[in-house]
Design a protein around this nucleic acid. Structure first.
Length: 501
RNA sequence: GAGCCGUUAGCUCAGUUGGCAGAGCACCGGACUUUUAAUCCGGGUGUCCUGGGUUCGAGCCCCAGACGGCUCACCA
């Protein structure tokens, strides 16, 4: 094979097939003719596909240059229609032997679907009314050696969609749309916060003490310092140090890592918005949260309503607000007084078919009830508030009921979208909470919060009363795009190795 | 980590009771100068996920494994 003018053996990939072989041979012939497409470094594009279509009235008869990927071909002898896909969308090209000449038309016939091409030509409308570039010159800018997925069904195989996202983006317009919505939503959030005087900052991703949340971290190692570091599970404690430092409104949008299971709602690395506002409490955070989300939806989708499972979700404020225990009563039918005593609470859970082993803390029982009976019902945006202090070690307790924290979690479409509270700024109380967590860690709870003396020292310098929010960007995008899986809104979700050796 | 389902051509998918591996698109050859899932004629290009086993014979049955999806468990 290698001797028949084909490409050298070592240039081939491991999964060659007939179509790839043919394309490699075409590339070889081009190179032998001194027309190696990969030597071209630029193409003077004058218009995007969408621009040509949108400005047809003024461009008709004018010459334009467009470039992109050849995604379809319809041959009619001495005329051929091509579909060109660029970053803005699709435009049709018309190649005619009359215009190109016999030789150029023949060479254009050697193009393959998937090739990257540049075309110079006049803007016309075809007999069927489609805006089209009638080519005067066609340039191959990059050869596609592999065939594209099928044009009609696109790329359906979810594993291939995740592993080869580039193919998904080429073949499935909906996938392109999702990531455009995601980008617009994030930009809208930044604009919204910037306009309200927030400062965007970056805090360490490599942290010596992984705090700010209750979760297992990834461990890594710095060679020069010869010490283990952790990939952050939250940016919380660093951002609050900035509040101490007088940056009174700060936020960060960035990757966060939790060493836990993977599911349709969890990726080991995800994007979180965290923000902190001095002199505000969790009530103010509710208003800020619903404002951020509604604005993101408006800017990304042009509407505050989204469809999901045939139901319309209205994201415009105000959202419903309900106390955790009231929600449990409403949806699970369990009276708050039944949850005061651990024995009665366990009996109620057992009755409902939930695990209720001896010694299970009431807070866990409440959480189980909530997740089983309440959370799936919270389709419209809902703030659930007043969580047990024991599971909120960084939140300020309610002055009147210290067993409850000034904390809320927002839910949309049954998804937990974030977490927020009035930040605990009493350094002595924070130390007691940390000690409580350290004791739980000693009991084997490896998600309990570690002690962080430097954070306590910062609080000892004085932090104003502060409200804070964490918002899962990926999950918000799931809501905005109606995506059932978090993998649909993360460009390269975590998967197992493709091949095991 | 557990349960259920899936893996067949480049892509989307059929494959009957265990009996020569199939279709559409893509691709290759031919016709065609305004089509848009173009059309018409001709051509199947394959590690049936992998490794064992049963059988005269395995895509199909059995066992083990890989990868993926969904559900559950922990979390945002």
């Amino acid at each position: 094979m290698a001797g028949s003018g084909g490409p050298p053996e070592e240039a081939r990939g491991p999964d060659e097939n007939e179509q790839v072989r043919q394309r490699r041979e075409k590339l070889s012939r081009l190179r032998e003719a001194g027309e190696d497409p990969f030597r071209i470094t630029a193409f003077p594009r004058t218009h995007l596909a969408a621009e040509v279509v949108a400005a047809f009235a003024s461009l008709q008869g004018e010459e334009v240059s467009v470039a992109g990927r050849l995604t379809a071909r319809r041959r009619h002898g001495k005329a051929t229609f091509l579909d060109l896909l660029d970053g803005s969308g699709r435009i049709q090209l018309l190649l005619r032997e009359n215009n190109l000449g016999e030789e150029a038309y023949r060479k254009a016939g050697e193009l393959d679907v998937g090739d990257i091409i540049g075309v110079r030509g006049g803007v016309v409308r075809t007999r069927t009314g489609e805006v089209t570039v009638e080519a005067a010159e066609v340039t191959l800018l990059a050869k596609a050696l592999r065939p594209l997925p099928e044009k009609w069904h696109g790329l359906k195989d979810v594993e291939l969609r995740y592993r080869r996202r580039y193919l998904d983006l080429i073949a499935n317009p909906e996938s392109r749309r999702i990531f455009q919505v995601r980008s617009r939503a994030v930009r809208a959030i930044r604009n919204y916060l910037d306009r309200r005087g927030f400062l965007e900052v970056e805090t360490p991703i490599l942290q010596p003490i992984p705090g700010g949340a209750l979760a297992r971290p990834f461990i890594t190692h710095h060679n020069a310092l010869d010490r283990d570091l952790y990939l952050r599970i939250a940016s919380e404690l660093y951002l609050k140090r900035l509040i101490v430092g007088g940056l009174e409104r700060v936020y960060e949008i960035g990757p966060t890592f939790r060493n836990e299971g993977i599911s349709t709602r969890h990726n080991p690395e995800f994007t979180m918005l965290e923000l902190y506002q001095a002199y505000a409490d969790y009530q103010a955070m509710m208003e800020l949260f619903e404002g951020v989300v509604a604005h993101a939806a408006q800017e990304a989708l042009g509407a505050t309503r989204v469809e999901r499972d045939g139901e319309t979700i209205e994201l415009a404020p105000p959202w419903r607000r309900i106390k955790l225990l009231d929600a449990v009563q409403e949806y699970a039918g369990v009276a708050p007084e039944d949850l005061l005593d651990p024995e009665r609470a366990r009996a109620v859970c057992a009755e409902k078919g939930l695990p209720a082993e001896e010694g299970t803390p009431v807070s866990t029982l409440i959480n189980n009830l909530f997740e089983a009976f309440v959370q799936p019902k919270l389709v419209q945006p809902t703030f659930v508030f007043d969580y047990p202090t024991i599971i909120s070690p960084l939140a300020k307790a309610r002055p009147d009921r210290p067993e409850l924290a000034e904390r809320f979690e927002p839910f949309i479409a049954g998804l937990e979208l974030g977490n927020a509270f009035s930040e605990l700024n009493d350094p002595e109380e924070q130390r007691r909470r940390f000690q409580e967590q350290v004791a739980m860690r000693a009991q084997g709870d490896d998600e309990a919060h570690p002690m962080d003396e430097d954070y306590l020292r910062a609080l000892e310098y004085g932090m104003p009363p502060t409200g804070g929010i964490g918002l899962g960007i990926d999950r918000l995008v799931m809501v905005l795009t109606g995506s059932p899986s978090i993998r649909d809104v993360i460009l390269f979700p975590q998967l197992r190795a493709e091949k095991s050796d």
